[in-house]
Amino acid sequence: MAYKTPADLRYAKTHEWVRQEGEEVVIGITDYAQHALGDVVYIELPAVGSTITAGESFGIVESVKASSDLYAPVSGEVVAVNTALESDQAPINSDPYGAGWMLRVRPSGESVELLDAEEYAAFVAEIEH
């Protein structure tokens, strides 16, 4: 199964993506992650102004089948939250790299190991084998 892995993003092994936009980064979950989860029906995200810590849970997504943690790829302060997802989670599945974005963060420096698109695609292929 081929999953979208845009070349301009970096990826955590916990299946979140990071897009650098100036001083800030945008965070969401990958196409592979949304596919593995199935239809997301509920999401909990942190508030604007809170801080997230690289490698630690910053929220949860729930599908019919499972509840999954969202892990912070970077540490930093949350400057924006995609609150539209609280009432309609469909974009997480239909447009995970676009309208399904979750947080905008001002990074403080620390991050987990981040893969480029090619490395991440290979990582996913290995999980799926």
């Binding site: 199964m1 596919h35 593995a36 199935g38 239809d39 029906v41 599908s63 019919v64 089948k65 599945n93």
Partner: peptide, 21 residues
Amino acid sequence: GARMVEFGGWEMPVQYRGIIE
């Protein structure tokens, strides 16, 4: 294009188009 999972020792389809649909 089913997504296959382990269930009770079997490799079974968990979904085709999506559980909710």
